[in-house]
């Protein structure tokens, strides 16, 4: 069985377990929607200031909801020491990392897909830019966040305080993604030209590549910590 088919079997297992219980998705969705409501009450949705910080509000909701999902992604592997069951199987351990990145990314995208229209409606925001631009930004930023988040979630999963430790480890590392995501979202929603945000796009792409390669090299050792 090839590397790819093992990754897909692992993703299928995560999907099967998640869609049976909906533990992770429901918590992430409820959290993201709560953020919409709270920010809606905290700020005047129609004011110019709120419109300026709208992309930031959007990504705060996505990233915090994402942390909840990342925290849960390795919890399931800890019941009955299932992670050990995978570690003794003839599977390259990076397959486990890639499968978790794919499933975490899929769950985050589902949350973003549901929450974004709610955000736009709640804040009465009509994007001036084109949808493909926004979709590209969401995909790149979500990938960067999930790639590093999955790696750190695996590290934190071996500790007693994993729920607290993950955000403390993750947010300082993920700052470039947060800034780039907010800047790019603001630019695409405003319909700005590509040239104006090319630098942030490069930051995001380079970040994504680095945090795809580094965990690939280190994940084997990380699991044995």
């Amino acid at each position: 069985m090839s590397f790819l088919s093992k990754v897909l079997a692992l993703v299928e297992k995560d999907f099967r377990a998640e869609f049976r219980t909906k533990e992770m998705l429901s918590v992430m969705l409820i959290f993201a929607l709560l953020v919409v409501v709270i920010f809606g009450f905290a700020f005047n949705p129609t004011s110019q200031v709120t419109r300026k910080i709208f992309p930031g509000i959007l990504w705060v909701a996505f990233f915090f909801a994402g942390v909840l999902g990342l925290n849960h992604s390795f919890t399931r592997e800890r019941y009955n020491q299932a992670l050990h069951g995978l570690m003794i199987a003839p599977v390259d351990r990076s397959a486990l990392y890639f499968s978790k990145v794919l499933s975490n990314m899929a769950f985050m995208l589902i949350v973003e897909l549901v929450a974004t229209p709610v955000f736009l409606v709640f804040f009465d925001y009509s994007p001036a830019g084109r949808l493909p631009g926004l979709v590209s930004v969401v995909l790149l930023a979500t990938f960067g966040f999930v790639a590093v988040g999955t790696f750190l979630a695996a590290l934190a999963a071996n500790t007693r305080t994993s729920q607290i430790l993950l955000p403390i480890l993750l947010f300082p590392v993920v700052v470039p993604v947060v800034i780039a995501a907010v800047q790019l979202t603001a630019a695409t929603l405003a319909g700005s030209s590509t040239a104006s945000f090319a630098a942030w796009l490069r930051v995001l792409v380079v970040y994504d590549i680095i945090f795809l390669v580094v965990p690939f090299l280190l994940f084997d050792y990380l699991l044995e910590v």
Partner: peptide, 10 residues
């Protein structure tokens, strides 16, 4: 092992 390595939700 005395741990089953099984997934409870499957």
């Amino acid at each position: 092992s005395h741990h089953t390595y099984l997934y409870d939700d499957l």
